[in-house]
Simulated assay, not measured.
Amino acid sequence: MLSVLLVEDDQDLADTIIEYLELEQISCHYASNGVAGLHLAEENRYDVLLLDLNLPRLDGLTLCRKLRDQGDDTPVLMLTARDELDDKLDGFRAGTDDYLVKPFELQELVVRIFALSRRRSGEAKKLSCADLEMNLQNHTITRQGTSIKLSPIGWKLLEVLLRASPGAVSRQELMEKVWGDDLPDSNSLKVHIFNLRKAVDGSFEPPLVHTITGHGFALSADKPV
């Protein structure tokens, strides 16, 4: 079952959306203001965030920007009564993935939710796992405050693993996302993973790069079962 967070100060609209989503087998958590929504987003993992643009205590753009700055890559669908291009551009600059202008059809809302849920957002500015942090803006990687240098391929491998963390990524998916159609042989992947593990785990504890036998790799503070 999909799980979404709705942050909307119009109680009547929120009740209508929540009821409709339940009929579509979509679990919905709800907050009536931006501060409460930020807390829920930080404490839980959702498939999609539905954010009203004009919220009390913390507006939707600021809420989205804060989450992106923290490395949250949950897709964001902004709900707004504004249909001006400048407003939409502001939203995309803040890290919004899609817009839905009020009033909207609930069926369209569900279609957008399912479409967004199939991918994680590419708008996050930081990705992290335990004490490992990748800053996508500054193009830096640190662990326990120590700078880590990677090759371009190593960077791409780590980014894919961080975006999926703590979930596993199959060898085939990893190669396709890093090399595209020009796939290397399996030995090349092994060498790059060896170098990545040496850089990320060589001088640190606990190890974060794990081999999932018969499947692929995962980045996690806890060894996958």
Rank of each mutant, 00 (worst) to 15 (best):
E19Q: 09
E19C: 12
E19H: 12
E19Y: 11
Y20S: 05
Y20V: 14
E22L: 08
L23H: 09
L23K: 04
L23N: 07
L23Q: 02
E24G: 07
Q25V: 09
Q25G: 08
Q25F: 11
Q25I: 03
Q25N: 09
Q25W: 08
I26D: 10
I26K: 02
I26T: 07
I26E: 05
I26H: 04
S27N: 12
S27G: 09
S27H: 06
S27M: 07
S27V: 12
S27Y: 06
S27E: 14
C28V: 14
C28Y: 08
H29Q: 12
H29G: 05
Y30I: 11
A31S: 06
A31L: 02
S32W: 06
S32T: 04
N33F: 04
N33D: 15
N33G: 07
G34Q: 01
G34H: 00
G34P: 03
G34K: 01
G34R: 04
G34M: 13
V35D: 03
V35E: 05
V35R: 00
A36D: 10
G37A: 07
G37M: 01
G37T: 03
G37V: 03
G37I: 01
L38Y: 14
L38W: 13
H39C: 13
H39Q: 13
L40M: 10
L40Q: 15
L40V: 05
A41V: 09
A41Y: 01
E42M: 10
E42V: 08
E42G: 15
E43L: 09
E43F: 03
N44S: 15
N44K: 08
N44T: 10
R45L: 10
R45D: 10
R45H: 09
R45C: 06
R45W: 03
R45P: 00
R45E: 12
D47E: 01
D47I: 01
V48T: 06
V48S: 03
V48M: 08
V48W: 05
L49E: 12
L49T: 12
L49M: 11
L49P: 14
L50M: 10
L50I: 10
L50K: 01
L51E: 13
L51R: 02
L51T: 12
L51C: 13
L51N: 11
D52E: 02
D52M: 00
L53I: 04
N54C: 11
N54F: 06
P56Q: 06
P56Y: 04
R57Q: 14
R57S: 11
R57M: 15
L58Y: 01
L58M: 04
L58C: 01
L58N: 00
L58P: 00
D59M: 07
D59G: 11
D59K: 02
D59E: 12
D59T: 09
D59W: 04
G60T: 09
G60I: 13
L61R: 05
L61V: 07
T62R: 14
T62M: 12
T62L: 14
T62C: 13
L63M: 01
